[in-house]
Nucleic acid binder design. Structure first.
Length: 606
DNA sequence: CCCCCCCC
């Protein structure tokens, strides 16, 4: 059997805290450790041909390799990035474990076909003495380099003992963030505070309180840490963004991806016994500043709505500042939409709110780096929205920023991007063909967010009552105005009176297809297409002749259109019913419609 | 233990 150049003797060096560049190891066994919340962690038995160790862990960054079957029994791997950590949760006293952060598969298990050599199990037990001797003066973790370094540290006589908590934890062995799990609570991490939230209060049926959260980073990974109530008083002012702290004795629990974009399966909570202690050593400077897990825009259509992601893009277009009232709270809201593009030639809308929307300045197509923005879905498109925990930077001094700048200046500015935030239209919006009977039989619209479908519909009857109304003249506001009978019109939404108004259509109509019929609502722009008149023209006709609407509607009766409809549950006066809105009408494209019919006929015939 | 984050 070929020996695949295993790095004989490498494990002895590494497991004593020494350095070894890109060791080549054979995987002898792989085991999922702890199921349930921790299903993404794997323990491996690895060999260098001479020795083997059973405490090698694969961290989440490499797990796609493992689940896809690349890393399997007998395969040979090159460890590109790894660290060691001393743990005390294996039931065998203090032991050093190997954490592989990044690897390359050199030969698959199938190709190798069996164990190489006769490796002997290495004793990985450590004594406090040994860990001190083996540790170097270098930073505890060095994830960017291809070398390993030990995580044990020489106790630093110069370390200042800070008075948060009674125990000095700066002398204890430091663990990488990526090694933390809920199954192990004896650890100390050394991490930089990337970001700290404002203090927020809450009040609900379960009680009330206050909280803040911060994001911690080291060379191995990142984690969110939240403090409630007393912890807010104890640590909020003490902890400062960009500084480095030793942190210990927090409670770990599974992270919720809906609220956090950090790459960690867990997050932690400060408890009464937790310790946070500032690190004043010079070696703190080697810890990373901030970590981004950028998602390219072409992936956003597939992202789960309401999850939180990191994004980077060039500002292609800056929308106007818009002001409106929130329907739910009545509060005045300000927003501004930015259109961002990236190297995948994809454009996405990023919505800024409040002061950030008002004050946004961005000439010369700057780069926007958005950490922790929320994916939202509207009208079949996906967009990004800033939330309170988001962090927006313009042209920050990071490598990705220069890369995207280079792309845009060289070619990106000349290319038409695919806008994934565009609602309906040709973009990503596609609604399945349905008949009204199928819509009813299949119970569409009974879900949370409503369903879209398209139908070849015939207008059977347009209600002439209230089909046109006098609306607020403000461009973004279409609220019906109150005629004050003195030449002025009042908009309750804008809380203003105007000498003028605009006409808007809101048509209710009965639409039929071969299977049945359905009442649908249609807003202004689509109703204008159906009537073949603008709202203004309709309004003017009615001003001349009060009952002109029935004649206008009659002209549209029995016309056929392809209608894209949304059916959704609506609750009004405690009564829930299905409401259908026709969001788009198009002239019948017979070629497309016939193709659909032919397909259905073929389905029927099997 | 929060996790609301708004509108079309």
């Amino acid at each position: 059997m070929a020996n695949y150049n295993l790095s004989e003797g490498a494990l002895e060096v590494i497991m004593r805290g020494g350095e070894y560049e890109h060791p080549i190891l054979q995987v002898l066994a792989v085991k999922k450790i702890a199921s349930g919340v921790d299903k993404q962690r794997f323990r491996m038995l690895v060999s260098d041909g001479k020795n083997s160790i059973s405490f090698a862990m694969l961290t989440t960054q490499s797990n796609d390799k493992l689940t896809s079957g690349d890393v399997s029994e007998f395969c040979v791997i090159k460890c590109l990035k790894f660290i060691t950590s001393i743990v005390n949760n294996t039931g065998k006293g203090e032991q050093r474990v190997l954490l592989i952060l990044e690897l390359e598969v050199i030969a698959t298990g199938e190709q190798v076909g069996g164990r190489i050599g006769s490796p002997k199990m290495l004793d990985v037990a450590t004594s406090a003495q040994e860990s001190v001797q083996s540790s170097s003066n270098r930073p505890a973790l060095n994830g960017t380099a291809s070398t390993s370094t030990t995580t044990a540290r020489i106790p630093n006589q110069n370390a200042q003992v800070v008075t948060q908590g009674t125990t000095d934890i700066s002398n204890m062995p430091v663990h990488p963030i990526s090694s933390l799990t809920p199954y192990h609570n004896k650890w100390v991490i050394k991490a930089r505070v990337m970001n700290k939230s404002a203090i927020r209060t809450w009040s609900n049926s379960k009680g009330e309180g206050k909280l803040f959260s911060m994001e911690l980073v080291d060379e191995s990974g990142e984690i969110r840490c939240t403090g409630f109530r007393d912890a807010v008083d104890k640590y909020y002012d003490y902890v400062q963004v960009d500084k480095v702290y030793y942190v210990s004795k927090c409670i770990l629990k599974p992270a919720n991806k809906q609220f956090c974009s950090l790459k960690n399966d867990y997050e932690m909570t400060l408890a009464a016994e937790s310790i946070i202690q500032e690190c004043t050593e010079t070696e703190a400077s080697c810890l990373p500043q901030i970590k981004y897990n950028f998602v390219t825009f072409d992936k956003i259509p597939h992202a789960e709505p309401n999850t939180v992601v990191d994004a980077i893009g060039i500002v292609k277009n800056i929308g106007d500042l818009q002001t409106f009232q929130a329907r739910s709270t009545g509060r005045e809201l300000k927003k501004r939409e930015l259109l961002l593009v990236d190297q995948t030639n994809t454009a996405v809308t990023l919505t800024l709110w409040g002061a950030e929307a008002e004050n946004f300045q961005g000439s010369n197509n700057p780069v926007v780096v958005a950490k922790g923005v929320r994916v939202s879905e509207f009208g079949g498109g996906k967009s990004l929205s800033v939330v309170s925990s988001s962090n927006i930077k313009i042209n920050p001094d990071i490598q990705e920023c220069y890369r995207i700048r280079g792309w845009y200046d060289a070619e990106g500015s000349n290319i038409e991007a695919n806008n994934i935030s565009a609602k309906s239209g040709l973009g990503s919006f596609s609604a399945p063909w349905m008949s009204f009977k199928e819509v009813t039989d299949q119970g569409l619209g009974n879900g949370e967010r409503g369903d879209y479908y398209q139908v070849m519909g015939t207008i059977l009857l347009i209600r002439s009552e209230n089909a046109v109304y006098k609306a607020c003249p403000t461009p973004e506001c279409n609220k019906k105005v109150v005629d004050l009978e003195n030449g002025m019109y009042r908009c309750e939404k804008c809380n203003r009176e105007f000498p003028n108004f605009k006409y808007r259509l809101l048509a209710s109509m009965n639409v039929g297809d071969w299977s049945g019929n359905q009442w649908v609502s249609m807003f202004n722009d689509e109703a204008e297409k159906v009537l073949g008149m603008t709202a203004q023209e309709v309004g003017a006709r009615i001003e001349q002749e009060a009952d002109a609407m029935s004649a206008i509607a009659d002209k549209a009766h029995f016309k056929q259109f392809i209608m894209k409809c949304r059916v959704k549950q609506e609750t009004f006066n405690d009564e829930t019913r299905l409401k259908t809105v026709c969001v788009k009408v198009d002239p019948v494209n017979y070629e497309e419609y016939n193709n659909h019919l032919i397909e259905r006929i073929q389905q029927l015939m099997g």
